[in-house]
Amino acid sequence: MQIFVKTATGKTITLEVEPSDTIENVKAKIQDKEGIPPDQQRLAFAGKQLEDGRTLSDYNIQKESTLHLALR
């Protein structure tokens, strides 16, 4: 499925993911596309910060959802 990640600079990244993917996997995909190390990424959805060990389906993130990326 496709999801979107909006960066602090307003850029939107499109990612191909599975509901079973962990947040860690998603951060690795962002690193592949943007070169941002996962340990510098903070992802949020619906106002909640997402934890590495959880999956997209844990957070009820569905196709075409938009996550927000902040850098630490």
Rank of each mutant, 00 (worst) to 15 (best):
L67I: 15
P19W: 09
D58L: 03
R42H: 10
L50F: 02
Q49K: 09
K11R: 13
T22P: 11
T9F: 10
G53Q: 13
P19I: 08
T55G: 03
T22K: 13
A46R: 15
G10V: 04
L67R: 01
I13K: 02
V26Y: 00
H68N: 07
G10T: 05
T14L: 08
L15T: 01
I23V: 09
R54C: 05
G35F: 08
I61R: 00
L69F: 04
K29M: 09
K63R: 12
T14H: 08
Q40A: 12
A8N: 10
I13T: 04
R72N: 11
E64L: 13
E64V: 03
D39S: 14
R72I: 13
T7M: 14
D39T: 07
E18H: 10
N60G: 08
G10P: 06
I36K: 03
F45D: 02
L50P: 01
I61H: 00
A28F: 13
Y59E: 03
N60P: 03
E18T: 14
L69P: 01
V17D: 00
D21T: 12
T55V: 09
G35K: 08
L50T: 02
D58G: 04
K29S: 06
L71K: 10
N25A: 11
E51Y: 08
L71I: 08
A46F: 15
P38C: 04
R54I: 09
Y59R: 01
E34W: 12
S57I: 09
T9Y: 10
I61K: 00
H68S: 14
L43C: 01
D58W: 13
V5H: 00
E64T: 11
G53P: 07
D21V: 05
F4A: 04
A28R: 09
K63A: 10
E64M: 07
S20N: 14
R42V: 12
K6D: 14
T55C: 04
E16G: 10
K27V: 02
A44V: 14
A44P: 00
I61C: 02
G10R: 05
A8H: 14
L56T: 02
A28W: 08
G35Q: 08
P19A: 12
I3G: 00
L50V: 04
S20F: 15
T14R: 15
Q31N: 15
N25E: 11
L15Y: 02
T9C: 06
E34F: 13
G47K: 05
E34N: 11
L56M: 05
P19C: 04
P19E: 13
R42F: 14
A28L: 10
Q31V: 05
P19T: 13
R42Q: 07
T12K: 07
Q40D: 11
N25H: 10
L15E: 01
I13G: 01
L56P: 01
Q40E: 14
G35S: 08
A70F: 14
S57Q: 14
E64S: 11
T66P: 02
F45M: 05
Y59L: 05
D21Q: 06
V26M: 04
S20K: 06
N60S: 11
Q49I: 09
F45N: 03
R42W: 06
K48V: 15
N25G: 13
S65H: 14
P19Q: 07
Q31G: 09
D58F: 15
P19L: 10
V26R: 00
K29W: 05
I36G: 02
L69H: 02
G10Y: 05
V17N: 01
F4S: 05
K48W: 14
I30E: 00
T14Q: 08
N60W: 05
K6N: 12
A8P: 08
Q62V: 07
V5Q: 00
M1I: 08
T7D: 07
E16A: 08
Q41T: 04
V26E: 00
N60Q: 13
R54D: 06
A8I: 06
T22V: 13
Q62L: 13
A70H: 15
D39Y: 08
